[in-house]
């Protein structure tokens, strides 16, 4: 049974989608379309191109917000990891942000920056940045001491230690911080489209709901979840490929 995992995955998908189809046919609720109706709506939106237009709109704040968070977050995280003064000053803010329900800031952001792109980018940033900063700083702080010692004993300058030891050693954790940041960014992007102004995918969801076109609404939700999951899984695969063996190779194996 070499392909047992694959068969079971397909079986598992068949069970869930089958249950969805049956529940839709009963129907359990007037607002619960069958799986096939939903897929039909998804195909229709794909063929007439409306879903691509929607994603062009949705991905704009997501991409910009993640890019800003990545740049600021990694820079700040490096500083926090390297300097105890920065650590003292900034860490508490991000620790609190990481635990706090930052979504509650959305009404204030809307009041301050309006209902346009700026607010949405802000929402993505506040969701994505804390984990990027915290991962970067703790990765820098936890660079194996023996590797830094090794570099010093072979006469490394501070710049060498940073570029040749700390950064490569920290990069797997920084990368997974980015992945978690993107995951949180997806939540933020959709939240802002549902809460602030319906645009892009959020617009399809809201509009189809208002005209009771439930298959289209479900299809839009299905597609965004599919997109996020596939993209994040690809990132994880890339991560495993890039940093294969990076966390191994020490004596303590």
């Amino acid at each position: 049974m070499q392909n047992r995992p694959l068969i079971l995955k397909l079986l598992s998908a068949a069970i869930v989608f089958g249950a969805w189809e049956i529940a839709g046919r009963i129907p359990v609720s007037y607002a619960f379309p069958t799986f096939l109706e939903t897929m039909e709506a998804l195909v229709r939106m794909t063929l007439d191109g409306s879903i691509f237009q929607a994603y062009a709109e949705t991905l704009k704040p997501l991409v910009l917000g993640v890019a800003i968070s990545a740049f600021l977050g990694i820079t700040l995280g490096l500083w926090i990891g390297l300097s105890s003064w920065f650590d003292w000053l900034f860490s508490p803010i991000f620790v609190v942000m990481q635990a706090a329900p930052l979504a509650a800031l959305i009404p204030i952001l809307v009041m301050a920056y309006g209902i346009g792109l700026t607010s949405k980018i802000f929402v993505v940033c506040i969701m994505a940045m804390p984990v990027i900063v915290l991962n970067t700083s703790s990765a820098v702080r936890n660079t194996p001491a023996s590797m830094k010692e090794m570099a010093h004993s072979f006469l490394a300058k501070d710049r060498d230690v940073l570029l040749k030891i700390i950064l490569p050693a920290a990069s797997p954790i920084i990368f997974s911080g980015l992945r978690l940041g993107i995951s949180a960014g997806f939540i933020g992007a959709i939240l802002s489209e549902l809460k602030i102004t319906p645009t892009g995918v959020g617009d399809i969801i809201t509009y189809s709901r208002s005209i009771a076109d439930y298959p289209s609404m479900y299809a839009a939700i299905f597609s965004i979840i599919l997109l996020a999951v596939v993209f994040l899984n690809l990132l994880e695969k890339l991560e495993n490929y890039l940093f294969e063996g990076n966390n191994r190779g020490y004596a303590s194996d």
Binding site: P144, M147, M150, S153, F154, P168, F243
Partner: peptide, 18 residues
């Protein structure tokens, strides 16, 4: 401080895994 006249071999090897 560390100098070119000495070289260190580490208990946990301290190799760069990358």
């Amino acid at each position: 401080g560390p100098g070119p006249d000495r070289a260190f071999v580490f208990q946990d090897f301290a190799l760069l895994p990358w």
